[in-house]
């Protein structure tokens, strides 16, 4: 899959799981980075079954960014759960700004340069595990409004012959 496909699927899946828009958007960016960096995809599957966990993770990143904005010193964070920690690393690495991370056990040491762009490369293709892809496709589908004659007739271009 392309980077964009994985990222967009992540946004829709998180939305379908009940995550609010800002956090869903950030989750999509995290997911593409996570898959690109060979992060454990089981952790993502688990998180999607607990949307509050994704919201909590988003909030944790927000506090880290907030801390980085008021001090040039590295931000220290701790996350005991290995899966959540891996996603936290991906979340920070997936930010648009430049970031450096050191992970030692449960502890993270993070340097963020909020006004400098990220220099991390992106691969040509991403491999999403089929089971996770299926779960996310199912969750994403929850954000689509079922088709109906009424919605078709109100949609773009409805009701006009095209033979100009």
């Amino acid at each position: 899959m392309s980077w964009t496909e994985v990222q967009n699927l992540g946004v829709k899946a998180a939305s379908g799981a009940g995550v609010p828009p800002a956090q869903a958007l950030a989750f999509g960016a995290m997911l593409a980075r996570h898959v690109a960096d060979d992060g454990p995809q089981g952790a993502v599957t688990a998180a999607l079954s607990e949307p509050e966990r994704i919201v909590g993770l988003a909030h944790k990143v927000e506090t880290i960014v907030e801390a980085a904005s008021i001090s040039s010193k590295p931000v220290l964070a701790k996350e005991e759960d290995a899966g959540t920690r891996a996603m936290l690393v991906s979340w920070i690495a997936g930010l648009p700004c430049k970031s450096d991370l050191e992970v030692a056990g449960a502890k993270l040491r993070i340097n963020l340069s909020l006004t400098e762009p990220s220099t991390r490369g992106r691969p040509e293709r991403l491999h999403l595990e089929p089971s996770l892809a299926a779960l996310m496709t199912e969750l994403a589908a929850k954000t689509y409004v079922p088709d109906s004659a009424a919605s078709r007739s109100g949609g773009a271009g409805a009701g006009l012959m095209e033979l100009d």
Partner: peptide
């Protein structure tokens, strides 16, 4: 604003006349 299940076509609905507003795009 919403995304239709039909080929994921973006559409615009009337909140008071059509179903699906709970799925609106932000």
């Amino acid at each position: 604003w919403y995304v239709s299940a039909a080929k994921l076509e973006p559409r615009l609905g009337d909140r008071f006349a059509e179903p699906g507003a709970e799925l609106e795009t932000p």
